[in-house]
Simulated assay, not measured.
Amino acid sequence: MSSVHSNVVLQALSIFTGSTVKSLTADTTDGKELNVFNFLPTTFARTQAVDEVDSLQASCPNLFVDINKFLDPRFDYDFTHLTDNSTCMRGNEPYTRPCGWTRTAVKVLDKYPDGNAWLGTDGWRSNSVAGEWPVSYHGTSMNSAKAIIVSHYIPGRGEVYGRGIYSTFDIKEATKYSHTVTCEKTRKKYNVLLQNRINPKMRTVCARSDYWMIKIPAGTPSDKEREIVEKSIRPYGILFKEV
């Protein structure tokens, strides 16, 4: 596992889902298991006010996760001491690596029916590859970002940009909406973010050009919302930065 302690990961998952996330054990009987697929709609329902998504948190305050199934240490990466913030390309969009952060990888390889092309190829490269999706970052309170977009960039009473999931390719902007967790063992504090890939066919560029949105129209059935989320935006890493 990465240099980030497991209790910090559990705290981050708790913040993202709005539930108390604990390690899954053989004695677990009073909650649901958190996995890659229910993590997505639960997280985005909570932080983006997607009203009708049937989030786990609404019916189950306790979630349990098998860290070995949820995380993939093979793809962890420590950007802590990286100072080269030169721009690369991912999905034909600029990608600035998260210098100063540590990425704990989520186990997404071979999890989706459309294959792994959306992830691109592993290892250092400056260019995009075929089928790859762009990178975006998601803060744990980006519903506040939505309010900023609506109130400052869309004129007229009652005119809003839209209902859906907001994220940004600008990690500095996303950091404004990150929360802080504290390691119980070392007492170190970390900001946390999600690092995602976003489907270029599903996103819309917002009135503020540094934000992307996945549209989810009001009245969309909960099963359809989950389908839209899965096809549109996929977290593949949890980022931690010591503060």
Rank of each mutant, 00 (worst) to 15 (best):
V229Q: 10
G31Q: 03
P41V: 06
N85V: 12
V50P: 01
D170H: 06
E93P: 00
R187Y: 13
P155N: 15
K224Y: 06
L193Q: 02
N35P: 13
T80K: 12
F44E: 04
S209R: 14
D76Q: 04
G100F: 12
M1A: 10
F37M: 04
M213T: 00
D51L: 10
A45N: 07
P113C: 06
T47I: 07
S209N: 13
S141P: 00
V65L: 09
E184L: 15
V129Y: 01
G237V: 07
P155K: 14
Y137P: 14
G131D: 07
L63W: 08
G120H: 03
P94R: 13
T43Y: 09
I148G: 05
K111Y: 08
D110C: 05
H5Q: 11
Y153Q: 01
T186S: 15
A58H: 03
W118D: 03
I216S: 00
A49L: 07
S209G: 12
K201S: 06
E242C: 09
S151D: 09
Y153W: 05
P217F: 02
T175E: 09
Q11P: 02
C60Q: 11
W101Y: 12
D27I: 05
I67S: 06
D54T: 05
S59G: 09
P98I: 08
T204E: 07
D78V: 12
D72E: 10
V53Q: 01
D223N: 10
D122Q: 13
Y236C: 08
D27K: 08
G131R: 08
P217L: 04
T96M: 14
I214M: 04
T204P: 00
N62L: 13
K107Y: 14
C99E: 13
A147T: 15
Q195G: 04
E52W: 02
N127K: 13
R226Y: 01
W124S: 14
R197Y: 02
T180M: 14
R97T: 14
R163I: 12
A12L: 05
H138P: 02
K176W: 03
